[in-house]
Write a protein that binds this DNA or RNA. Structure first.
Length: 1162
RNA sequence: GCUCAGAUGGUGGAACUGGUAGACACGCAGGACUUAAAAUCCUGUUCCCGUAAACGGAGUGCGGGUUCGAUUCCCGCUCUGAGUACCA
């Protein structure tokens, strides 16, 4: 029978599934090998032809390793939490779990038909409770640990508490928040539980802290740095802004050095390692404190500082009297002529003198207006402002002015730099602009036009380092600074802690509840904390994450009532603490602050009337009451004023519910429409005044201290089994993918994330294949979590992925058609030409004709001639051919184009409605399409679906063709054109086993020398190629081998049987079929033995030496390989043809490389 | 700007440690079979000069260098792609 790929492939896929052929053994005497693919997010679009590229490569490798006698773990699963399913849920109301389930089914079907050798018994899904139970469990371990720098590893929080109890914060070398306080053991013991918890939170490896985050309003969530590209969200491309919020973070910075060092020990692509190094961004330098010159720190400075309700961080006040900078060139300290601090620097207000205040305020206002993008675009213009204050250079006592400028970033180093205009180009430009001195500090420096950052030469103008060279000078300066107690050598990292919370629904719930505003872990026995059902997948009306909608989303304390904590810290007094529901307090505080900072125009106007007690009563705006944020409220009178049309306002019912609750808490609600306020604010103001006068004092009995009303209506007070609200954020997408490779080792364990034995057997991933887009996300976080788990002795390897390969991106190859228009004027087609489009029947010109029309080489008359010639006598009549011709290009579905030739029949059927009565002007009887390489996407009609190709050619052909396309790591455009060649090859291979009548026929004769040579060549070649991941070249070699054996008319059983094993990892279905036809037991091929290469079969006794003259090959001569160079030289020189080339002259020199070449110099 | 990767026929690409540049495949051209088309098979196919062949010349982004010999090593440059960016 001819090669019936469809039947064969279905048969074997069924067989593998039924027999669990690829199930890895948990224990084995064989050596282990772990081949892992980056598991996919199951998107609704299904797989396109680019997705399986890496999977095919890893599958070939896994199958090859099985043949080489390894116990191979080759699993697959789904990274099934994520945004698209949730966005879809928001639009349609369909639960993300249902969408995800459906998408996974599609993925599974598509993966199965490619014939992968995955061990599906170990499948994982990050969104399955069995799985995310352990993601939550690992989160809990992170919460329960801190980083001890002395031990250089994570240690239990109980150990930290023990340290505090014995010696307070003294002698502790920990990675922690900057605000961590110093205290003695006695002070520690004097703290109450909440205060202690608050302090411990500053050390935990996952912690809650107010931090500047990337907020994406369109997605309604924060994003990690690696999820933001150029100021836009990676998913969806929405704008991202900076914002302060209470957020969960992961203290990945604790591992910065280990993450950096580990890169040297793993076999990863260099560019990828480089990206991680840049991301970690280690710079070695020094920190220096510049004492503030005692002249005249502004007395109003402090009063003007709005952030009064914040505790000033240590060292951030004038008592210490110094500004700390970080520099990588401490040797240039004598060249410092000014200091620059970030506009957001905490000392700005205090340093600003009254005389400079206006200028500084204006500058700050100006920078605030600039978006991140503007700031980047503006990089070249110099801007800044003088504060009026000075610091003292500690090494030469010079008075140095302090400026603010936005080229200094608040988030890096200390947010302050010492400016050395002679050595740094930005400082140089700044100095020129503000006319500040520029002092050369090295005798080799040339600073006439620009800064010279050289380290060469000897120091000048630099007191005690004059005459020294760079290394000596740096050491001397650091030593001096240390002596003075004003500086020390310091290492800085660019990497920030990773933001961990997401204000979204479809993710792992954080196993945390809040008590007295502090996070507490739930009990381990309550894991998994299941994702609750919600009515909608949107934020609540008060702006809380979707989980805020879940009913009863609260933790029931397992035993007796927890001790009632102290009331809020004093600096919160006078705020809305007393009216807000304490459970939501922290969150509400953030949202209300955000709202205050972004008032709507109507709010702004109304506020002008209500502020400063103009009504006779004090009003607060964006004030939290219970779970809501009121637009304006008078607490004395209990009057809430609400404006409609604020961005988070939803429906009438919601408003009514809100009014009811507010009434319940003793508030009257007054509502105004935005337009009312905008059109007649005076009238609104009068109404407010009237109402205030009519109202009695508010009844405050609802809010007494921390005695609270539960958000769900139940009464918490003092009862056993009291309820505390759960965290409302969920975990980010990278949580589940940061440890999944361990779950595959022991996927069904319900006692541990994976058993000790399983981890000790499988250890780590030997080969990991995936895209480089995960360089600073998944791959960095995974290394971080792995190191953490290693510190806890839960895993055995420091690095999770020994070898990693990035498969290249498959780009799309779009095809274009060219529509011809005629109209009275020429040039491009604009939108206004719609009428022309509609009234003219579609006429398309083949590619090169279209080019000629575009270039004016083919005019209307020529076109008419072509139409008449190709379409008939009067065909041209329906076009306005007397007018000027021009063309418009549009995408055409690549699936109806083959080798750039358009299938006109299919086109007419497909585009019947869009282009009725379409006509085509052909070249050489074909319609040739234009082409271009673009991203593969639906909108470009260039998506090639693997299903179609499998239907047409089969999975084996697809697998081999994807490999044949080019080197695995290289990005390349998809082009289906060559696939026929691979298909022909497989047919030819099938043919070897069959006679003319397609009957299976093999001979049992002894193989000939030539047959064995071909066979062993390919045995060796595939071995070499697979080991170095050069899959494309082995496909070529297979073709060569089959071509040779076809020429030899080989149907020798021994040769063919080995050949089947060699090809089996590339084209498993056809090989399984032939393997059984050869008389082997079905299904044994996957665990057969790879044939042993025998070099004896490749030994030649002659070699066709290339004979070259002056390096140019002239001819070949067959010479016995037993001849030594001397004899070869004599033999070659004796040859008459050689003599002819030499013109009978004696060559100056003859080079003979045995088995390679003969070269003569004349 | 910085860092990294890359540049070879009409196309995808091969040439592994410096040793016959263009393997393998697509495409194209010609031919066989066929009433015809498809499919299949055969031959040719880097470019230039030459009627064809023999033969000759050029040739791996550009310019130089090392070498008997360079796609491969070194120096300088151009272009393309990726990452990153006032990081002190």
């Amino acid at each position: 029978m001819d090669y019936q790929f469809k039947d064969i492939e279905q048969k074997w896929q069924q067989f593998w599934a039924d027999n669990q052929t690829f199930k890895a053994e948990d224990k084995s005497t064989k050596p282990k090998y772990y081949v892992l693919d980056m598991f996919p997010y199951p998107s609704g679009a299904g797989l396109h032809v680019g997705h399986p590229l890496g999977y095919i490569a890893s599958d070939i490798f896994a199958r090859y390793k099985r043949l080489k006698g390894f116990n191979v773990l080759h699993p697959m699963g789904y990274d099934s939490f994520g945004l698209p399913a949730e966005q879809y849920a928001i639009q349609t109301g369909q639960h993300p779990a249902i969408t995800t389930e459906a998408n996974i089914a599609t993925y599974r079907r598509q993966l199965d038909q490619i014939g992968f050798s995955f061990d599906w018994s170990r499948e994982v899904r990050t969104s399955s409770p069995d799985y995310y139970k352990w993601t939550q469990w690992i989160f809990m371990q992170l919460f329960n640990n801190w980083y001890n720098k002395d031990a250089d590893k994570a240690e239990s929080i109980t150990k930290l508490v023990a340290h505090f109890e014995v010696s307070g914060s003294a002698g502790l070398n920990a990675v922690c928040d900057e605000e961590a306080a110093s205290f003695t053991a006695a002070e520690w013991k004097a703290k109450n539980n909440n205060e202690q918890q608050e302090e411990l939170l500053k050390y935990r490896l996952t912690y809650l802290r107010e931090s500047t985050v990337n907020w994406c309003p369109a997605l309604g969530t924060v994003l990690a740095n690696d999820e933001v590209k150029d100021g836009f969200s990676e998913r969806g491309g929405y704008p991202v802004e900076q914002k302060k919020m209470m957020q969960w973070s992961m203290r990945i910075t604790a591992y910065a050095e280990r993450l950096l060092q580990g890169l040297d020990k793993i076999d990863w692509p260099e560019p990828l390692k480089e990206m991680q190094r840049n991301w970690i961004g280690k710079s070695i330098g020094a920190s220096v404190k510049f004492p503030i010159s005692p002249s005249q720190p502004s007395p109003e400075g402090r009063a003007l500082n709005e952030a009064d309700n914040k505790v000033s961080p240590t060292g951030g006040d004038l008592e210490g009297g110094a500004i700390e900078v970080f520099t990588t060139r401490v040797d240039t300290i004598f060249g410092v002529t000014f200091l620059v601090i970030a506009p957001e620097h905490e000392l700005v207000a205090e340093l600003t003198t009254p005389a400079q205040k206006a200028e500084i305020d204006a500058y700050i206002a100006q920078t605030k207006k600039k978006s991140e993008l503007d700031r980047m675009a503006d990089a070249k213009t110099v801007s800044g402002a003088f504060t009026g204050s000075y610091v003292i250079n500690p090494l030469n006592d010079e008075k140095v002015p302090i400026y603010i400028a936005d080229y200094v970033l608040a988030g890096y180093g200390t947010g302050a730099v010492m400016a050395v205009p002679s050595g740094d180009q930005r400082d140089f430009l700044f100095a020129k602009h503000f006319d500040l001195p520029i002092i050369p500090i090295l005798d080799t420096q040339n600073i006439t036009d620009e800064a010279d950052p050289t380290k060469e030469g000897k120091y000048i103008n630099s007191l005690f380092i004059n005459g020294l060279v760079y290394k000596e000078a740096t050491a001397a300066v650091v030593a001096k600074l240390e002596e003075l107690g004003l500086g020390k050598a310091k290492v800085n990292f660019r990497m920030r802690d990773a933001i961990f919370g997401r204000q979204r629904y479809w993710g792992e719930p954080v196993p945390v509840y809040f008590k007295d505003g502090l996070p507490h872990l739930i009990s381990e026995s309550d894991l998994p904390l299941l994702l609750p059902e919600v009515d909608k997948y949107l934020p609540t009306e008060s702006g809380e994450p979707p989980l805020g909608r879940a009913e009863g989303w609260a933790y029931t304390a397992p035993s007796k009532s927890p001790p009632v904590g102290e009331t809020s810290p004093s600096h919160e007094a006078g705020n809305y603490r007393e009216t807000a529901d304490p459970v939501y307090y922290e969150q509400l505080k953030d949202y209300s602050r955000e709202n205050r900072n972004q008032p709507t125009p109507a709010e702004d106007i109304l506020w002008q009337f209500l502020r400063k007690e103009q009504t006779g009563f004090k009003f607060r705006r964006q004030h939290a009451i219970d779970q809501y944020i009121a637009d304006f409220v008078s607490l004395e009178k209990g009057l809430v004023i609400e404006l409609d049309g604020h961005h988070h306002r939803l429906s009438k019912e919601a408003d009514d519910a809100r009014t009811e609750i507010l009434n319940h808490f003793g508030f009257e609600v007054l509502r105004f429409a935005n337009d009312e306020v905008l059109q007649n604010p005076q009238k609104v103001f009068e109404k407010v005044k009237e109402k205030l006068e009519a109202l009695p004092e508010r009844d405050k009995t609802h809010f007494i201290g921390d005695q609270k009303v539960s958000p769900t209506g139940g009464d918490l007070e003092g009862a056993d089994g009291a309820e505390y609200a759960y965290e409302l954020s969920t975990m980010p997408g990278w949580a589940g993918s940061s440890w999944y490779w361990y779950r595959y080792m022991d996927a069904h364990n319900n006692k541990e994330f994976a058993s000790k034995e399983a981890i000790e057997y499988w250890k780590d991933v030997d080969l990991y294949i995936g895209g480089s887009e995960h360089a600073t996300g998944h791959l960095l976080y995974s290394r971080f979590w792995n190191k953490f788990l290693k510190d806890l002795d839960l895993v055995v390897e420091e690095e999770p992925f020994k070898k990693l390969i990035n498969q290249g991106m498959i780009q799309g190859r779009s095809n274009f058609i060219y529509r011809v228009f005629f109209r009275p004027w020429g040039g491009e087609l604009f939108e206004d030409a719609d009428s022309v489009k509609k009234t003219t029947p579609p006429l398309f010109a083949s590619f090169s004709l279209a080019q000629k029309i575009k270039n004016g080489e083919l005019l209307s008359d020529d076109i008419k001639e072509l139409i008449t010639e190709q379409l008939g006598e009067h065909a041209a009549d329906k076009y306005n051919i007397s007018q000027v011709a021009f063309v418009q290009r549009s995408h055409v579905d690549v699936n109806i184009v083959q080798n750039d030739i358009l299938d006109i029949q299919q086109f007419k059927a497909k585009y019947l409605r869009e282009y009725p009565e379409a006509e085509f002007i052909l070249e050489k009887d074909n319609y040739i399409c234009g082409h271009e390489v673009e991203k593969m996407s639906k909108s470009k009609f260039n998506v090639v679906n693997p299903d179609d190709l499998i239907t047409r050619y089969g999975a084996d052909t697809l697998r081999m063709y994807e490999m044949f396309l080019g080197p695995l790591e290289q990005s390349k455009p998809w082009n289906t054109n060559g696939i026929e060649g691979v298909f022909k090859f497989l047919r030819k291979f099938w043919r070897l086993f069959h006679n003319e009548a397609w009957a299976f026929t093999v001979s049992d004769a002894e193989p000939t020398k030539a047959e064995l040579k071909s066979l062993h060549k390919i045995i060796r070649k595939v071995e070499e190629d697979v080991e170095r991941f050069s899959f494309n070249t082995s496909v070529s070699s297979f073709m060569i081998a089959i071509n040779e054996l076809t020429d030899l008319k080989c149907n020798n059983r021994k040769v063919l049987q080995d050949l089947v094993v060699v090809l089996a990892s590339y084209a498993p279905h056809i090989c399984e079929e032939l393997w059984t036809l050869l008389g082997n037991q079905a299904g044994t091929l996957s665990y057969a033995t790879y044939p042993k290469f025998n070099p004896a079969y490749l030994v030649e006794d002659e070699f066709a030496y290339p004979i070259s003259i002056n390096g140019k090959t002239k001819m070949n001569l067959n010479i016995s390989l037993s001849l030594e160079p001397k004899d070869i030289e004599a033999f070659v020189l004796a040859n008459t043809d050689v003599q002819r080339y030499l013109d009978n002259k004696q060559p100056k020199k003859v080079i003979v490389v045995k088995g390679r070449i003969v070269n003569m110099v004349i």
